[in-house]
Nucleic acid binder design. Structure first.
Lengths: 396, 396
DNA sequence: CTCGCTTTGTCCTGTGAGTGGAGAAAGTTG
DNA sequence: CAACTTTCTCCACTCACAGGACAAAGCGAG
């Protein structure tokens, strides 16, 4: 099947496509209420979109006291692929044009195996989704990778945790393999876009989205747009100093936030605590599993283990301290906490909140919600779909 | 004289006004090269602007091998007022429509004397400039105040160092007194706009402008626009924790950057050093002046005083540490250092650079210039003129 | 000085975007 | 069936804008 060949011809059409994406099916009249165009002009643009096949008119809506309206909706066959490549696993999902997740699969995989191996896996996963009948093909894909990206070209630059990816033409390669347009971004930015589109950050213009997983990063949204920085490394807060003369970090400095709190650091601390006999709960788990991860710490904490709770609290304090600085600096309207370690839940959140509310200025924190992301692992893939749809739903 | 009554009627006219402001006089042909309009349409819009009196055509330019062009320029009588209210002094300047400073005066004054006293002073200074023949009146004024501002209304909110200003309708009050449109912003943002318009930050889209004066603040420019944050307190980095369990700060916390390094903190440290006999140079100055300020420390350092140099270096290190975090987070294309203590010059800059280049990620610092502002005390007033001209030169 | 060339500025017409009103189509309620 | 509502279509008019033709003004060479 030939996929989405057309693109909106002008800003009006782009606007209409986004309205349909974000608001679902709509009548011409309803669209007219949301866009600053006369009914006649609107009708013309809708007709042109119908001609291109990007949108379809199917069926009539129930009457609201007058003539029944035609349902205008985005082509139901449109499919976007959202791919979230994490440090240790890959998420792939298909969405329809409204960015609703139709299917989602996750596979463990170490990103350090390199782009070739990872892409093989991604393509296999995409193929599986297609084979299951959810899509006949993909009209676009948004990919997140755990490192800085030169956004216009879609190429990772100097990514610390994914050697072998530096300069690899991710966008071009995947675009060829998938046969559709591809956009690439940092995984944290994707998460921010996901929460912005369908999560807690709807209708917030300026917010921060802190992702604590294997590493720590922060998506920055200014005026509804992701801020990527001059070299694409904006939001890389894992190597901000959290503890003066603290632990040595892989980056060569000492006391980086990431060295003191992240999925990796937490696991290491937990193992140490277990081996030193400071926590029976963790020791048991270490013995049965042979290893420990953030999930074990969360479970131990849930079981009331004091050491586990301490670990979480201390990490939350460190993180909160750094976030407090960022809040003073950036003055966001919302802070979202997400990523793998959010399983640590309320204990973590409470520690972060305490630090931020105590250390930042009242004016900046006065009305500042600090909340967990509500989309979990789907934030990234929805963000990917959103990224590519924003691209495709803009004037050619 | 009646002042600027007209406003640009559409985006084209606004664009033309800004081109003329930033590029000086221009022929119709040259304007056509810089704007995406046909010559005919351009001519129409220029004619309309000529009718309103906002621009004038005076004289012919030298021939460049063909017909001589008319010089189109902004009305030469247009005057903007830039006002920079600092913690301890007031700067007022008049500019022409091209934002060139025609006259600039400075008066010491403590902002804590409150808005009424300060405005009396500002009006007196503005009157002096007018009386000197530099302006027959003002077409607009941009005011900077040393605290957070609710920008749309032009009202300071919860300003820590200027009690008595909270909620005072600065914009409205001054607009009445001056009889012209007024815009109000944080002084740090004004400085950033000044350096962006006429200083080191020309042609840089994303940059930070750190102002170290009585307090410490940071102007944030994203994509050419000042980021003010949700409550107008963005850039308030003076109360980011720089030293864990450090000195008590007026804000109630400990170890704030501002408590360890700022004009006020530096003066206090210098007096302490003088009294403890750690610096003969500073002691002499303390005796003759009865007090010490950042200027004295700068002079002592220039004279080779080791203690003074140490004070500067340590402050620079603290500041650099905080900036390093912000650089990792924001990934700017430039960092500008300005404000009163820039008299400390190269010693300070070197300390800041060392910390930033050591602590931030190579990708973020790789090509990051860290420089002193080049406009000094005029940055703020030029920024003020820029602020109001941006406002007036936008579609009504 | 005249001729050819260049640059600048003006005029005019055609095209297409966009508005707003009239009214047709399709429904509901009484 | 009449009166009223909502949705959608059609049409005429306005205005923004492009682009070409052309006039105005200047330079340099012969």
């Amino acid at each position: 099947m030939r996929r989405m060949t057309a693109r909106p011809a002008n800003a009006h059409q782009a606007r209409l496509l986004r309205l349909l994406r974000d608001g679902g099916p709509n009548s011409r009249a309803q669209l007219g209420d949301q866009i600053d165009l006369s009914r006649s002009k609107l009708a013309v643009e809708v007709d042109r979109l119908l001609e291109t096949g990007l949108v379809v008119a199917d069926g009539l809506a129930a009457s609201r006291g007058g003539r029944r309206s035609h349902n205008i909706r985005l082509a139901p066959a449109l499919r976007f692929l959202g791919v979230d490549i994490g440090a240790t696993s890959i998420d792939v999902a298909v969405t329809n044009a409204e960015l609703e997740v139709l299917g989602h699969i996750n596979q463990p995989m170490d990103v350090r195996e390199g782009p070739v191996a990872v892409f093989e896996q991604v393509l296999a996963m995409a193929g599986k989704l297609r084979a299951s009948g959810l899509a006949e093909g993909f009209d676009g894909a948004g990919i997140g990778v755990p490192g800085p990206v030169r956004f216009p070209e879609g190429v990772p630059v100097a990514p610390p945790i994914m050697p072998g990816w530096d300069g690899f033409p991710v966008r071009e390669a995947l675009s060829q393999e998938l046969g559709c347009p591809v956009m690439v971004d940092n995984d944290v930015n994707l998460m921010a876009m996901g929460e912005q589109h369908a999560g807690v950050a709807r209708s917030v213009g300026d917010f921060l989205c802190v992702k604590i997983g294997t590493g720590i990063g922060c998506g920055i949204v200014v005026g509804g747009e992701v801020h990527r920085g001059t070299t694409g490394s904006a939001g890389d807060i894992g190597h901000i100093q959290a503890v003066p003369d603290g632990r040595p970090c892989a980056c060569g400095n000492r006391g980086c936030l990431e060295a003191h709190f992240s999925g990796a650091a937490l696991a290491r601390d937990a193992i140490e605590a277990a081996q030193q006999g400071r926590s029976a709960e963790l020791a048991t788990r270490l013995e049965t599993n042979g290893a420990l991860s953030a999930v074990d710490v969360a479970a131990a904490a849930a079981a009331g283990d004091a050491t586990a709770l301490d670990l979480i609290r201390e990490g939350g304090n460190r993180t909160g301290q750094v976030i407090a600085g960022l809040v003073s600096f950036f003055n966001p309207g919302l802070v979202v906490i997400g990523g793998g370690v959010t399983g640590l839940g309320h204990t973590l959140l409470a520690a972060i909140r305490t630090q931020v509310y105590r250390q930042s200025l009242p004016l900046a924190t006065g009305n500042l919600p600090i909340v967990l992301g509500e989309l979990g692992p789907t934030a990234g893939v929805i963000g990917g779909a959103r990224l590519i749809s924003d691209h495709l739903f803009s004037p050619a």
